[in-house]
Amino acid sequence: MESNAWLYINITLLITIVGFFIRKNKLFFLLQLVWMQLIMGLNTYSMDWESNENVFLNANTTSNARSGIFLRLYDIIAVFFKNIGLNYITFNFIFCLISTGIVGYIIYRLCKNPCIVISYIYIYPFIDNVIQKRAYYALGFIILGFYLFFKIKSKLLKNIAYLCCIILACQFHVLAILGFSFVIYELLSNNYKKIFVSLVILLGFLFRSKFAYIISILNVQSLNEKSDLYFNQLAKSSTLFHLIFWIFWQVAYLLIIIYCIKRFNLTTKLPSYVLDLNVWALILLPFYTFDPVFSRIFRVVMIFNYIVISNNIKIKDLKINKDSIYILFSQIILSCLSLYVFVFNSPFGFDNMVLNIFQNNVLLR
């Protein structure tokens, strides 16, 4: 069984590497997405499997106390699946397919070199996406929200579309609630956006001890459970060094985008929008005083970063220019660092974080 797992790990590694060379091939892009879906959707055990499956098994539609507006749709769909005799494996496959389909579609629509983007995702955050299943379901809807906000011209319609996507994302993971702040951010002028982000960061650090209390006022069980986990249990292992590291880690992604925009003199709408997403995402920094679990929201921004970076990998006559090399490898190094910190250096160990994923799959026996 373990030898098969290593075979599938090597296949994943090969698909990742080849994606940086076969940059535009539509069939290979489809192959990358299909393999991703097979690993994610047909997974039958991983680090968070039991907790995710228990949410599915405990889902009911008789009480609003557990979820309020959060996870309500999840409960309805889960109950429907159980009523027709379908298990969590099927449920997971369908919602992984929806998220992977959304991610693939948006990459295909926005990117000149889509295979590179998928390769970056394979480096990070692929493993975490497999493990943190409900976060991945939510990620698909948040990405769709950002995409629709970018594409729709009407201010009213883009806000409505975005808010609908965030509300949908909240049905799968409560962290998606942070996405509502983007609407406020986008109502502001560029100067006021910076003031808004600076103010949120400052207040976040000053009143971090009040976060759990603020959440408790809402009196929603699912929020209270997560509040206790994030702001109390996980925060016990937090240190100043950890905080500084996570701040530099996220800012490094921002700096690569800034370098890319300035070096290639990018003036089109997409790079400016992605830079805006990165600036908005700085509101996450105070949450790193508790735990990097809040970086799950930033994974959405990562994918848009990968798109902008990949669009500016310029190769002519089998030669790649110097700036493209710098950006390509800077992002590879940063993504590999993310993989090491979040996965390989995890206290749960390589076997639990990685090997379990490739050992436990309906198709890959």
Rank of each mutant, 00 (worst) to 15 (best):
L7D: 00
I9W: 08
I11Q: 02
L13Y: 13
G19T: 07
F20P: 10
R23L: 03
R23A: 03
K24F: 08
F29Q: 02
V34M: 08
W35Q: 02
M36I: 06
M40Q: 10
T44I: 13
E50Q: 13
F56P: 05
N60M: 04
T61E: 10
S63N: 12
A65V: 07
R66A: 07
G68H: 02
F70D: 00
L71C: 00
R72P: 00
D75T: 08
I76Y: 14
V79I: 09
F80T: 05
F81C: 12
N83S: 09
N87F: 02
T90W: 15
T100L: 08
G104F: 06
Y108K: 13
N113Q: 07
N113W: 01
P114A: 05
P114M: 11
C115G: 04
V117I: 08
S119E: 10
I121Q: 01
Y124N: 06
Y124D: 01
I131R: 09
K133H: 11
L139M: 14
I142F: 06
I142P: 01
L144D: 07
L148P: 01
L148F: 09
F150R: 12
L157S: 08
K158R: 15
A161N: 08
Y162T: 05
Y162Q: 04
L163N: 08
I166M: 11
V174M: 14
A176T: 14
V183Q: 11
S189W: 05
N190E: 14
Y192T: 08
Y192N: 12
I195C: 03
L202W: 02
L203F: 09
G204K: 08
G204V: 06
G204Q: 02
I214L: 15
L218H: 02
K226C: 04
T239F: 07
T239C: 02
H242V: 00
L243Q: 11
L243I: 05
I247P: 00
Q250W: 08
C260D: 04
R263A: 13
R263W: 08
F264D: 00
L270G: 12
L270Q: 03
V274F: 13
L275F: 15
D276M: 10
L277N: 01
L282N: 04
Y288K: 03
F290G: 00
V293C: 07
I297M: 15
M302H: 12
N305Y: 06
V308H: 12
I309G: 04
I309E: 11
S310A: 15
S310E: 05
N311L: 13
N311R: 12
I313A: 04
I320K: 05
D323Q: 09
I325C: 12
S330E: 10
S335P: 01
C336H: 01
Y340Q: 09
V341L: 12
F344K: 01
F348K: 15
N352V: 09
V354R: 03
L355K: 05
F358C: 07
N360H: 14
